[in-house]
Simulated scan of single mutants.
Amino acid sequence: MKLFIAISVLLNIAYIYKLSKDYYITYKKRIASEHVTYLYNRQTIYKVLPINKNDIVFIGDSHTQKFDVAEFFNKTNIKNRGIDGDVTEGVLLRLSDITKGHPAKIFLQIGINDIFQRNDLIKAIPNYKRIVRRILEDSPETKIYVESILPSKFANPDTVIRYNRAIKQISRDNGLTYIDLYDKFNSSGSLKPIYDCGDLIHLNGNGYVLWSGILKPYL
């Protein structure tokens, strides 16, 4: 009898585990599908909003997308081209929609999601070099401003620091302006609480006030 009960318990545990695993796999697939749809939607919107030679363009991920740059800087020629969840490869794929307009300036802030996804720099740094090279080749009159990525509780601080050093060197090699955001927002490898919106990743209003203040001299 005890053996029968033990077997029944084990079978129930195995069944519950399988259900949980199947649900998790289905959930991940649904989230991934929704994210792909979201990325595609943002890309189609940006395609029909043209860039011209007087524009200042902000390229990046969710940090940039949530940055109300036109209002913070009170300039109608500032265009936000941030996409939540974007990575360096994603920027490469949509870059031509921006460079064909030959904007006056580009502010580039991308890479934290590469670290979230892979926790290495094998692809991110070569991609960043390609991004810079593409802009220089396709729109040589555009001034490029390389912004460091921000600290995050969910990213290895050493990896973030190495990435920022690498893109700083890329900016030096190409005669570009590098803007250090990391040190202003950093507290032991995470966002300073005063700038954290509550998820340990994204900025609150105070954070964007600081960011916009750092960038104003370059506009």
Rank of each mutant, 00 (worst) to 15 (best):
Y27I: 11
N54W: 02
Q109W: 00
I98K: 03
A6H: 10
N77E: 07
K184F: 03
D55H: 06
D97F: 09
C197M: 10
K2F: 15
S148M: 13
Y145L: 09
R81Q: 04
T159M: 10
I122F: 11
I161H: 00
N77G: 02
R81L: 05
L49M: 09
D86F: 04
P140I: 07
R172T: 05
F154N: 13
R165H: 03
D183C: 02
L93H: 13
L150K: 05
N54K: 10
A155K: 02
Y40A: 06
K28E: 14
I112S: 14
I144P: 02
K129I: 13
K123E: 13
V160H: 01
L19D: 11
L11K: 01
I59W: 02
D180H: 01
D55A: 08
H63N: 12
G213Q: 12
A104S: 11
Y23A: 15
I149K: 03
L10F: 13
K105I: 11
S148V: 13
S96V: 09
Y15C: 14
P151W: 01
K21T: 15
F58N: 09
P140F: 01
N164R: 03
K216G: 02
Y218Q: 06
Y163P: 03
D180N: 12
H102T: 13
D120V: 10
D97T: 12
K21Q: 14
Q65S: 13
I98R: 05
G82E: 11
N174K: 04
S139Y: 07
D86E: 15
F58E: 07
L19M: 12
